[in-house]
């Protein structure tokens, strides 16, 4: 399973970035091997519609689960029609969040 966490830094020990569209990095983690990839968020820098561009990134990476602080109304509209599970309103380090998700502690 592929999990994406919005992050303030490039490692698994970085803290979650509560913003979705304008987060610093997307960290994409394979939940079995814990191998990961950190992608700088190119849309943090667009004038408007950052959330929409960010969804495009997440979907292109074929992510199953997204863990973030908050998703704006436009991005929500896209996620509602997708198969991606979105978890919001959490905080902590990226690694810890993934572990918690695997144990079924994040809803």
């Amino acid at each position: 399973m592929k999990i994406c966490v919005t992050s303030t830094g490039e490692s698994l020990d970085s803290a979650l970035d509560p913003r979705f569209g304008r987060c610093a990095y997307f960290i994409i983690i394979d939940s079995n091997s814990m191998e990961f990839e950190a992608i700088p968020n190119a849309s943090s820098n667009v004038r408007g519609g950052a959330g929409i561009e960010a969804v495009q990134t997440v979907i292109n990476k074929r992510v199953d689960v997204l863990i973030t602080g908050d998703v704006g109304p436009n991005a929500s509209r896209i996620f509602n029609t997708s198969n991606i599970k979105v978890i919001v309103g959490v905080s902590g380090a990226v690694r810890e969040l993934v572990e918690r998700y695997k144990k079924g502690l994040l809803k």
Partner: peptide, 11 residues
């Protein structure tokens, strides 16, 4: 002013 500039200042 734009979301971009606000984000820039906050970052």
């Amino acid at each position: 002013n734009s979301g971009k500039l606000v984000t820039f200042v906050r970052d």
